[in-house]
Design a binder for these strands. Structure first.
Lengths: 125, 125
DNA sequence: CCGATACATAAGTCATGGCTTATATATTTC
DNA sequence: GAAATATATAAGCCATGACTTATGTATCGG
């Protein structure tokens, strides 16, 4: 299950920053290290995780290593979330006559209408 | 940015197991604790994280607390990944004449055509 | 009310992983 | 081929967080 490694890879803040930088354009390791405020080995380690998740790919260019976004991992995660989303909709359709948006139109879904019964709930925080 | 908390929440394996259980049907805390092999407090702590990410919602039912999937967090993450996906496609379209599948048709994208130049790459592992 | 049940919260332990410094490996330049 | 540059790998430190065992707080049954 590759989407697991993708979720793990994207779960870290520094790696998300790397992805945001690569989102603009490909970058060599040194450029990424100076952009973020971490050392070069830290960046290399993060890039290895991202590479295993197939979120980035390398292209050796001289003695530099240029990293760029790769579609594999993201595609995998997207597919998983779509199947998950279907079940969320079903769970909602079960007791909500006014379901949220359909899968192809991402938008904030409608709120749940009302609790089934009010019963003096316990302190919610 | 809520999608950050969603990525963090889904980054943990135990929490993903909880989500998979809730994907079938709503469950009380005790049921989840016996299904997984962790203690009840551990489950409660994980559920709190999932709740903050708006991936689950609670419905008090007598002295039980029934958790079920909620659409908010997943919707947020899906929206973020879609915008991200657009940039991945652009990055690919820049140097690949045969781009991967469009956003509404999740499928394995075509492979990159060829490296720019072969140059006796360094040992790749 | 009182015991039992179901869950949340507190506090402490321990492992995972993110960061660092040091060093090894490639590649270009002179 | 030697020095310089760019990156990967190794090893160790340390913080975050996942788990545990208490214990507190509601809710139901008698």
């Amino acid at each position: 299950m590759t989407y697991v490694s993708v979720l793990h890879a994207m779960g870290d803040g520094t790696r998300r920053e790397l992805l945001e930088l690569l989102r603009r354009q490909p970058h060599a390791v040194g450029e990424l290290a100076t952009a973020l405020r971490v050392t070069q080995p830290a960046v290399s380690q993060h890039l290895r995780v991202l590479e295993h998740a197939r979120l980035v790919a390398v292209r050796p260019e001289g003695r530099r290593r240029v990293y760029s976004l790769a579609p594999g991992g993201l595609q995998e995660l997207r597919a998983y979330l779509e199947s998950f989303w279907a079940d969320v909709l079903n769970a909602f359709a079960a007791d909500d006559p006014n379901p949220p948006a359909p899968p192809e139109a991402p938008a904030t879904p409608a709120r749940r209408r009302a609790p089934r019964r009010r019963r003096r709930s316990r302190g919610s925080r």
